[in-house]
Amino acid sequence: MTRDAARPEPGTDDGLTVGRAAGLVGVSVRTLHHWDAIGLVRPSGRTRAGYRVYSGEDVARIHRVLVYRELGFELAQIGPILDDPGADATGHLRRQRRELVEQIERLHRMVGAVDRMLEASRTGMRLTPEQQVAIFGDDWRPEWTGEAERRWGRSAQWAQYAHRAAGRSPADWERVAAETDAFQADLAAAKRSGAAPGSPEANALAERHRALMSTYFDCTHAMQVCMGRMFTEDAGFAAHYDGIEPGLARWLADVLSANAAANGVDPETAAWE
């Protein structure tokens, strides 16, 4: 406890002592001592007994400091704003408001992702390993799901996938598997026929791929480009597509990139967003 806090408070009409000012505005005596020491808020008066006291204007300044601090300003920023009559306080507040709005939006997205994960956990629809093999074929490996979760489990897209997967029945998964098999067969046929990336036929297949991916999570053209890179760089994905048709992984990556470029995305700079 500080000496000022322990000392009996004098009754005065000249202003508020540090203890009373601290109690009024809801901060500690130590805080006011610190602000006094750094010149941020100093008691401007004294009582007849020699006590330093805060005037009404001093208390108003304390409140302004608290507002700026609550908005995230550093103490070193607050002093110049309050002391400089030419300082653009409104401009500072507007910039801070924009940052706060962006932070709120990020928090809302995080809450949404957590809610989707909670809902997926609550409903708990997960295929057993036996069901996975029965639906997706003998070459399916149930451990791939765990590997995917370890790789992407912290992403918003995985939260969407988990939420949507939780509501699917085995019949729904059978339908998805059939659509995927049909799509991959059409991919192989198009490559064998010589369809060039960027052609109407290839672009239509790229949009089918995006629609298929969007049953799991909201898939953008930029994300497709990133997937195409993964299909060629990841040995497991490359083996899967090239096992359907030799060279299919590279061809599919080129198809996705060409279609993305036709939709205003630069494949060279495309990012997962």
Rank of each mutant, 00 (worst) to 15 (best):
T2V: 06
R3N: 08
D4M: 07
R7N: 05
P10H: 05
T12I: 05
V25P: 03
R30A: 06
H33Y: 02
P43H: 02
G45L: 04
A49M: 01
V53Y: 03
Y54M: 03
S55H: 04
V59A: 02
A60E: 09
R61L: 03
Y68C: 14
E70R: 15
F73K: 05
F73T: 06
Q77G: 10
D83I: 10
D83L: 09
D88A: 10
R98E: 06
I104G: 05
E105Y: 01
R106K: 07
M110F: 01
V114W: 00
M117E: 11
E119L: 10
E119C: 07
R122G: 06
R122S: 10
T128R: 13
T128G: 12
T128N: 12
P129R: 13
E130Q: 15
Q131F: 06
Q132T: 12
I135V: 15
R141L: 10
P142K: 13
E143Y: 10
R150F: 03
R150V: 04
G153Q: 06
R154Q: 08
Q157A: 14
Q157W: 08
Q160F: 04
H163I: 01
A165L: 04
R168T: 05
R168L: 12
W173F: 11
E174W: 00
R175C: 00
A178W: 02
D186W: 00
A190D: 01
K191D: 00
K191L: 09
P197G: 04
S199W: 02
H209I: 05
A211H: 12
T215G: 15
Y216L: 15
Y216T: 14
D218M: 10
C219N: 14
T220K: 08
M223E: 14
C226W: 03
D234L: 12
G243A: 13
I244Y: 05
A249W: 10
W251K: 14
A253L: 10
A253Q: 13
V255Y: 09
S257G: 14
N259K: 03
G264R: 04
G264F: 03
A271S: 04
E273L: 06
